[in-house]
Amino acid sequence: MISYQEKLIALWTVFLLGTLFHTQLGLMPLFHGQDIAIADGHNSVNIAYILWGMLGFFILPMLAIVVMVFNDSKRYRIMHLNLTIFYTVLNFLHFVLDLKIIPIVWYQITLMIVLLLIGLLLNVVSLQWLRADSQYKKIA
């Protein structure tokens, strides 16, 4: 039987790969000097801040995966569930904002829908893990 941690690690990995693909779809043309559809508010923002933000967005799930391998505590499960909910909210907002960029880039929208669905599944499995008995208690 697959543990909740294994399911969550697989889901976070798929989520991060999808996020990487979404990022590359937007950044690759930008790095090659090609114009991409970016809302006017983004044009005034230094690209370094965007890249630092993306790095933070990647690091939190990476840390969640590492900690999950070594920690099965109730406190961590609660923190993890809150993290998945936070990412679901961010993904929903990102999806809504992507719909406002003209022209609408449908392959990006499709990917955001997939990422949002994976995020919802992360929420469900994380909640199940929170409600499950600790495997350390079962061993003792």
Rank of each mutant, 00 (worst) to 15 (best):
L127Y: 14
F70W: 13
L121D: 00
N43S: 09
Q128C: 02
K100R: 12
L60V: 15
I101K: 14
T19Q: 11
M68P: 00
F70R: 15
L97E: 06
N46G: 04
L111C: 05
V96I: 14
Y49E: 10
Q135C: 03
T19A: 13
F31T: 05
S134Y: 00
A37S: 12
T110Q: 07
V124Y: 15
I47N: 03
Y87L: 13
L115V: 06
L83D: 05
L116P: 01
H42N: 07
H42T: 09
F31V: 08
F86Q: 06
I59P: 09
R131F: 05
H42Y: 14
H32T: 07
L51C: 02
W52E: 06
F31C: 02
R131M: 14
R75K: 14
N46K: 04
A140Y: 09
N43M: 08
G119W: 05
S73Y: 06
W12H: 11
F31Q: 05
V45P: 02
L90P: 00
M68E: 04
K74M: 10
W12K: 11
K137V: 07
T110R: 01
I85N: 03
F95N: 10
V66C: 04
A10V: 10
K7M: 15
P61I: 01
L25Y: 00
S73A: 10
S73I: 07
T23W: 08
L117V: 15
I113L: 11
N46C: 07
R77N: 12
S73P: 10
G119K: 03
L115H: 02
H80N: 11
W52T: 10
I85F: 09
L27F: 11
I113M: 06
M68I: 02
G41N: 09
V45A: 11
T19K: 04
L51V: 09
E6T: 12
S126Y: 04
T84H: 04
G53C: 07
I139S: 02
F70C: 10
L11Y: 01
I36V: 15
Q135E: 12
